[in-house]
Amino acid sequence: MSTGDTFLPRRTAQQPKLPPPVKLPPSLAGDPSLPYPAIGTELHELRLQIPGVQGSVLGGVDGLLIAHDVPDTLDPDDLAAMAAATFGLGRQVSLRLGQGQFRQSTVRNEAGHFSVYAVGPHALLSVVGADAINVARLHLHAPPVAERLAKLLAPA
């Protein structure tokens, strides 16, 4: 069996053609130019307006905390990260179904709710609620809050 002239030419390793890395906007977290008092008021108002809201967190889509209004029993950094994870799943679903931008996602557990609302394209508002929370009222009230928060974040 002769293999003398059937050797394949030696190939050099090829670099796969990758698109240039995406330029990500700087993280909103830790930006000192944001209007934190106004953001804090919005988050605080949400807790006052709807009975059953235990706390709310404003985070970036990168999972980093921007501002929060939660009691000591909840970890705001964890909530911001979980919001980003929820957003990731929501975005994949929306991309696959061709349904546009992510808007809102709610997880209902045995003893409570966790809702995530899109705040513009780069931030997320997450709300932790008791089981007895009036979800319909939250869904009516939170999107305008998210819209106002998006305006507050816009100049940044």
Partner: peptide, 26 residues
């Protein structure tokens, strides 16, 4: 338990029955 509507009929342009439902749940 959630304040959401299972069905809605009527209403007027000024009266949003889903808002009324959420409020009256309380």
């Amino acid at each position: 338990t959630s304040g959401m509507t299972l069905g809605v009929v009527g209403g007027t342009p000024e009266i949003d029955l889903t808002v009324a439902a959420a409020g009256n749940t309380d």
